[in-house]
Amino acid sequence: HSLRVHINGKDFEVHNADEHVIRALEELIRRGADADELKEFLERWKG
């Protein structure tokens, strides 16, 4: 899957995101994670 996440006016393109990554991202958003947390998660995932 390809996923586009809009954080703090920046678009993050997440390519080849598997279900696990997408679910983790949705969980963060549901918990009310702020932009920094989401960005950190995506950067860690992209490795």
Rank of each mutant, 00 (worst) to 15 (best):
Glu40Ser: 12
Val5Phe: 13
Leu25Pro: 00
Leu3Arg: 02
Asp11Lys: 09
Glu37Thr: 08
Lys10Ala: 05
His6Ser: 13
Glu26Arg: 14
Asn16Glu: 05
Glu13Phe: 12
Leu42Pro: 00
Val14Gly: 00
Leu3Val: 15
Leu38Gln: 01
Glu43Asp: 10
Glu26Phe: 15
Asn8Leu: 05
Arg44Ser: 11
Gly9Thr: 00
Arg44Phe: 10
Val5Pro: 00
Lys10Pro: 00
Arg23Cys: 04
Glu26Lys: 15
Phe41Gly: 01
Arg23Glu: 07
His20Thr: 13
Gly47Gln: 13
Glu43Met: 15
His20Asp: 10
Asn8Ala: 07
Ala33Cys: 06
Lys46Gln: 12
Glu26Cys: 14
Leu38His: 00
Glu13His: 08
Asp36Lys: 08
Asp11Ser: 11
Lys10Asn: 05
Ala17Ile: 10
Ala33Ile: 05
Glu19Thr: 09
Trp45Glu: 02
Asp36Glu: 11
Val21Leu: 15
Glu43Arg: 15
Ile7His: 02
Glu13Ala: 05
Lys10Gly: 02
Lys46Met: 14
Asp18Phe: 04
Ile7Gln: 01
Leu3Ala: 04
Asp18Tyr: 04
His1Gly: 15
Asp18Leu: 05
Ile29Phe: 11
Ser2His: 15
Asp11Pro: 09
Ser2Lys: 13
Ala35Phe: 14
Glu19Trp: 12
Asp11Cys: 13
Arg23Ala: 07
Ala17Arg: 03
Val5Trp: 05
Arg30Asn: 09
Leu42Ser: 02
Leu38Asn: 00
Glu37Asp: 13
Glu43Gln: 14
Val14Ile: 13
Lys39Gln: 12
Phe41Leu: 06
Phe41Met: 07
Val21Ala: 07
Arg44Ile: 08
Glu19Ile: 14
Leu28Gln: 05
Asp36Met: 07
Val21Asn: 02
His15Tyr: 10
Val14Gln: 00
Glu37Ile: 08
Asn8Gln: 05
Asp34Pro: 07
His6Pro: 01
Ile29Cys: 04
His6Cys: 04
Gly32Ile: 03
Glu43Gly: 10
Ile22Asp: 00
Phe41Asp: 00
Glu37Ala: 12
Lys39Asn: 13
His1Glu: 15
His20Arg: 12
Leu28Thr: 01
Glu40Arg: 14
Gly9Pro: 00
Arg44Gln: 12
Asp11Thr: 15
Asp18Gln: 08
Gly9Arg: 01
Val5Ser: 01
His1Leu: 07
Asp18Gly: 06
Ala33Glu: 02
Arg23Asp: 04
Glu27Val: 12
Leu28His: 03
Glu26Gly: 06
Ser2Gln: 13
His1Val: 14
Asp11Leu: 15
Arg44His: 10
Val21Tyr: 02
His6Phe: 07
Trp45Ile: 07
Gly32Phe: 04
Ala24Ile: 09
Arg30Thr: 08
Ala33Trp: 10
Ile29Lys: 02
His20Glu: 10
Glu40Cys: 07
Asp11Arg: 08
Asp18Thr: 11
Asp11His: 13
Arg30Gly: 08
Glu37Leu: 06
Ala17His: 04
Glu37Tyr: 09
Asn8Lys: 05
Asp11Trp: 15
Lys46Ala: 14
Gly9Asp: 02
Glu26Asp: 06
Ser2Thr: 15
Arg4Asn: 14
Leu25Gly: 00
Leu25Trp: 06
His6Asp: 03
Lys46Ile: 14
Gly9His: 01
Arg30Trp: 12
Arg44Trp: 11
Lys39Glu: 14
Ile7Trp: 04
Arg31Leu: 11
Glu27Leu: 14
Glu19Gly: 07
Trp45Gln: 03
Gly47Ile: 13
His15Gly: 03
Ile7Asn: 00
Gly32Trp: 03
Val14Met: 05
Trp45Asp: 03
Asn8Val: 01
Ile22Arg: 04
Arg31Lys: 12
Val14Thr: 02
Glu40Tyr: 11
Val5Leu: 11
Asn8Gly: 09
Leu38Lys: 00
Arg23Gln: 08
Arg44Glu: 05
Ala24Pro: 01
Leu3Pro: 03
Leu25Cys: 02
Glu43Asn: 12
Leu28Cys: 03
His15Met: 07
Leu25Asn: 00
Glu13Leu: 09
His1Gln: 14
Gly47Trp: 12
Glu13Lys: 03
Asp34Arg: 06
Ile7Glu: 00
Lys10Phe: 05
Asp18Lys: 05
Asp18Glu: 10
Phe12Pro: 00
Leu28Tyr: 07
Asp11Glu: 14
Arg30Gln: 08
Val21His: 03
Lys10Tyr: 08
Lys39Leu: 15
Phe41Cys: 03
Lys39Ile: 15
Val14Leu: 09
Glu40Thr: 13
Ser2Cys: 06
Asp11Ile: 15
Asp34Cys: 04
Ala24Val: 08
Asp34Glu: 12
Val14His: 02
Lys46Trp: 14
Glu37Met: 11
Asp34Tyr: 05
Lys46Phe: 14
Leu25Thr: 01
Arg30His: 08
Ile22Thr: 04
Arg30Ile: 08
Glu40Val: 13
Lys10Thr: 09
Glu40Leu: 14
Ala24Trp: 09
Lys39Val: 14
His15Phe: 10
Asp11Phe: 13
Ala17Met: 09
Leu38Asp: 00
Trp45Met: 04
His20Tyr: 14
His20Met: 11
His1Trp: 03
His6Trp: 07
Val5Glu: 01
Arg44Ala: 10
Arg23Leu: 10
Val14Ser: 01
Gly32Glu: 04
Arg30Glu: 06
Arg31Val: 07
His20Ile: 10
His1Pro: 13
Ser2Tyr: 14
Asp34Trp: 05
Glu26Ser: 10
Arg4Gln: 14
Ala33Tyr: 10
Arg23Ser: 06
Leu38Thr: 02
His15Val: 11
Val14Lys: 00
Lys46Tyr: 13
Ile7Gly: 01
Leu25Phe: 10
His1Tyr: 02
His15Cys: 03
Arg31Ala: 10
Leu42Asp: 00
Glu26Met: 15
Glu43Leu: 15
Asn16Thr: 09
Glu37Trp: 04
Phe12Glu: 02
Asp36Ser: 10
Glu19Val: 12
Glu37His: 07
Glu13Cys: 14
Trp45Ala: 02
Ile7Thr: 01
Ile22His: 03
Arg23Ile: 07
Leu42Thr: 04
Trp45Lys: 02
Glu43Thr: 11
Gly32Arg: 05
Glu26Ile: 15
Phe41His: 04
Val5Tyr: 05
Ala33Met: 07
Gly32Lys: 05
Arg30Tyr: 09
Phe12Arg: 00
Leu3Thr: 10
Leu42Cys: 06
Arg31His: 08
Ile29Ser: 03
Val14Pro: 00
Ala17Thr: 08
Ile22Ala: 03
Arg31Asn: 10
Ile7Met: 04
Gly47His: 12
Ala24Cys: 04
Val5Gln: 01
Glu19Ala: 11
Leu42Ala: 04
Gly32Leu: 04
Arg31Cys: 03
Glu40Ile: 13
Leu3Asp: 06
Glu40His: 09
Trp45Cys: 02
Asp11Gly: 05
Ile29Val: 08
